[in-house]
Every structure is written in C-alpha cells, then in structure tokens.
C-alpha cells in the first residue's frame, strides 16, 4: 500500500517477542514506514527529546508512537504524561497497545490523552487483525507533524 505520509513509527515495548510480532504484522499489512523499537519508557523519552542514546538525532517530521503500558524504568503512563505535557511532543499521536484491558486503565489512558487503545489479544488472528487495522489506519489518516 503506498504511503505518502512518511510517518515514522516508534514502538515502545519491553517484550521483544511482542515488538517483533508487531513489526512482522505491520510489514505484512504493507506498512513500509521506518520503524524504531525501544524497550522501555526512558529510551522512548530519549528518542522523543533527543537525549541519551538518541542525543543529537532529529525527531522525524511525522511520528506515531505505539506504546506498551507495563514497562520497567518508566512505564507507559509516565511516557504518555510527559509527552502530553511537552509542547514538542503533545501532538504526536499515541496508540496504546497492551495486554491490559482493565476498564479503569483504558479510561486513565484516554484521560492522559492517548488517541487509540488496543488490547493485545492472546488470540493471534485477532492480534494480527488489530495490527492490520492499525496499518490501515496509518495509511488513511494524516498524521500531524511531530513538532508543535
């Protein structure tokens, strides 16, 4: 599927298996955008704010974040909070992709300003399907610029 938006994808996921499955399924859905995977919240913030291992690197013009919730160092809520509190990152769309389907947690994420909340189903077909839909979403939705 052609993609003229040049959206980069940041996967923030501490489980390497999950990260790999997400990448594989995105690829299968013909998402060819550049994908960066980091394994905890701190690395995600480093990527977003050009610090630590990502010091000096430019933030991609168009970015989408796939964010897990339960992670070491900084969890998904903290990342979401920091992103929404900072003018440089508050307009970057965030998709929560997590095993948690507790209604209170879903509500909390929306309150913090996430755009979409997707539960990782154990059922792989559903999982692949969810990622495929995400791919579709990426291909049809214009993602606003990463910089405010």
């Amino acid at each position: 599927m052609p993609n003229g938006h040049e959206v980069s994808i940041l996967i923030v996921e501490d489980d390497p298996g999950h990260a790999r499955l997400i990448e594989k399924n995105l690829k299968r859905s013909n998402i060819t955008n550049s994908v960066t995977a980091v394994s905890d919240g701190q690395q995600a913030l480093d990527f977003l704010f050009g610090t630590g291992a990502f010091a000096g690197k430019e933030l991609p013009a168009q970015l989408l974040v796939l964010l897990d919730l339960n992670m070491p160092v900084l969890d998904g809520y903290q990342v979401l909070e920091r992103m929404k509190a900072d003018p440089r990152t508050k307009r970057i769309p965030v998709i929560i992709l997590t095993t948690t389907d507790d209604p209170r947690e879903v509500a909390r994420c929306y309150e913090l300003g996430c755009n979409v909340y997707i539960t990782k189903p154990v059922d792989y077909v559903k999982f692949a399907d969810a990622i495929a839909k995400l791919g579709l979403l990426l291909s049809i939705v214009a993602v606003p610029g990463g910089k405010a």
Partner: peptide
Amino acid sequence: AYIVSHDLRAPLVNLRGFSAE
C-alpha cells in the same frame, strides 16, 4: 491477581503469536 493475570498474558501473546508464525 491483577498483576499475575496481566504478566501471564504477555508470554502467552508470544506463545500464541510465534506458534502461529
């Protein structure tokens, strides 16, 4: 109960996902 449930789900996603792979 809550943590166990969620933390146990994560490896299951992999088991299911990679067995499908």
